[in-house]
Amino acid sequence: MVETVLFWIFGAVALGSAFGVVMGGTLPGKGGSPVASLLFMVSTLASVAGIYVLLEAHFLAAIQVMVYAGAIMVLFLFVIMLLNLGHEYQRDMKGWMASLMLFLVSGALGGILAYRFAGPGGGAELDFLAEANTAAMDAALAEQGAVGVIAEPLYTTYVVPFELTGILLLVAIVGALALAKRRVA
């Protein structure tokens, strides 16, 4: 019961904040800074992390907060401040006609997805998504703990992709440095 209430709260916050991300810094009289969007994004990420907890993905929830809401968003913030954005002479949003059309397009996308998930013949009516099926995961969690349950496949079945992501991060670091470094004429 408590979980359901929490889910609705987190879900509402996540959706609202996501809307804020999209519209941030463009509301009348609020200036043009992208920082607003960024802060809304942090809020969204935190809400999603909450939902992760409700879905018994404790480890991912922690990482979501630390890596995403923490590290990556701070990186964005640094860049925004570094570039001193928010004083654009061009309008950030497209015109209302275009916006409406794009809203319809993306709305259709979300509608189709939601319909596939929840509509007739969709997820809600599938045995697959029945609450009872969560028992196996609950048992695994009880046995191995929140970290152990994800660490085990990560270091056995997925050890090669895991190492490869390490290389990917290294390459990304080098690449980012090479790209962002000021060229000395």
């Binding site: 959706l15 497209k94 929840a118």
Partner: peptide, 22 residues
């Protein structure tokens, strides 16, 4: 199911944002 619908809506909002912002 509700969480999945939430994910669909978040995805749609993200898409809208990509399309509409400059």
């Amino acid at each position: 199911t509700q969480a999945l619908v939430l994910s669909a809506l978040l995805f749609a909002l993200g898409t809208f944002g990509v399309l509409v912002r400059r």
